[in-house]
Write a protein that binds this DNA or RNA. Structure first.
Lengths: 231, 231
DNA sequence: TCGCGACTTTGCGCGAAGACAAACAATCGG
DNA sequence: CCGATTGTTTGTCTTCGCGCAAAGTCGCGA
């Protein structure tokens, strides 16, 4: 395998601040994984044998319930660790991670995990914080699902995605990966129809601009107002 | 303060397997906290200055959104750590923990946390696992909220509570703490009215038996069938 | 023991949003 | 360049469950 440069992982919050030799040692055990758009890093229910770091691209994590209905659990950005099932004592991946665009990841065999933990205590702390952040996010989503109207939830999701993956353009803030109405619907627990209708209405009053798998936020403040309003 | 016995914490999964001296050392830094029914261990938004272990009783954790709507995030059982905000780098408690029945907890000042982590690496691992379990649970709730009907969600919540806090009686499995229709409604994102109606219907066909803040599961299999059904 | 407050039940009407349906783009591979 | 596939829009109809309202009941504290 080609030599991997330590700069690949130094930028990730998980490994930030580690001495260069440690980074090299960690990298030596990783293998690179090319993920063309649409390909899965792992699938729900598969035995969790590896954990990953996304270097480039964007992954969509989906979960299927026993009745076959699907939801989008989260999007993974470059620098994020994912598939860390063994950290939380889970035997099988609880979801499926699919490349939303051509992506590149590093993968480590599970066995590496406990060795890393032992040698680098900061890793446990960082992982704890990352899990904590995801937990916070999940709790917020539960609260939103329980208490907010669909339109408010769509606004919230779009704003969050814009913040997480926004790229400035002349028109506004472009969400920088293909995002279908269906994806958005599965993120917030509604149907693509409702999302589509809402977008049409928003487009008419200049809040957003959108096309096929493409969303541009034109009026962030306006969306925030919708997300927060209570009537 | 009265001397605390190490058996108090040895039973908690977080501290299980630690040598007795370590337990004693940890206990020495704890203070006991009596929580009469209705009293809060901490409130949402308060600066997080302590973390806790529930010894006895049951706490209800609620979250309020900016519009003032409330939800029940989880119930804390004896042996659970809670208020571990500092572990996930959060300045303020994200929710309010109220005693559902007279309860007893241990409390440690935040400063103890990093020292404990450094001396007892297993603590990080255990905390990670507990966060992981909560994350899994949250994700499941999101999936349910997004895809399941209200009746299925009520059934699911009741079954979960029965498993977590069930006590066998001659009539069936009693949920062993006061649980109002309102609580249940806030757990699954509906109104107390709908919960009440559903319970009336279930009671009529013998699935459950219930009274004021009281639920007894009579036909577990029947509830499971409702929870899983897809039509 | 007797209120009073907290919790629960039940009825009714309405509205948000889901189901179904069908037409319409845009993209891609051949 | 064309057809197939995938994604999007829009319309209509239906319905679940929420909002509102009011009455009923249980239990605790005075």
């Amino acid at each position: 395998m080609a030599q991997l440069d330590r700069s690949l992982i130094a930028g990730s919050p998980t490994f930030a601040g580690m001495p260069p030799e440690a980074l090299d040692e960690i990298l030596a055990q990783a293998s690179a994984l090319r993920l063309p758009k649409g390909e899965a890093a792992f699938r729900q229910g598969e035995p969790a044998e590896r954990f990953f770091l996304l270097l480039h691209g964007r992954l969509r994590v989906t979960r299927l319930n026993p009745q076959g209905q699907q939801m989008v659990a989260r999007f993974i950005a470059p620098g994020d660790m994912f598939g860390v099932a063994m950290a939380i004592q889970v035997e099988a991946y609880p979801g499926t991670a699919t490349a939303a665009v051509d992506s590149l990841a590093l993968a480590w065999p599970n066995a590496v995990w406990s060795a890393l933990l032992a040698r680098h205590p900061s890793l446990a702390v960082k992982t704890m914080q990352s899990l904590g952040a995801r937990l916070q996010d999940s709790q917020k989503r539960i609260l939103d699902l329980s208490t907010q109207q669909v339109e408010q939830r769509i606004a919230g999701a779009v704003l969050q995605l814009a913040q997480q993956a926004g790229r400035k353009t002349e028109d506004g803030l472009l969400i920088d990966f293909p995002l279908s109405r269906q994806d958005l619907a599965e993120m917030i627990g509604t149907t693509l129809h409702t999302v589509s209708r809402t977008f049409s209405a928003w487009e008419a009053i200049g809040l957003v601009e959108c096309g096929r798998q493409r969303v541009v936020v034109r009026d962030r403040a306006g969306l925030q107002k919708i997300a927060k309003k209570q009537d």
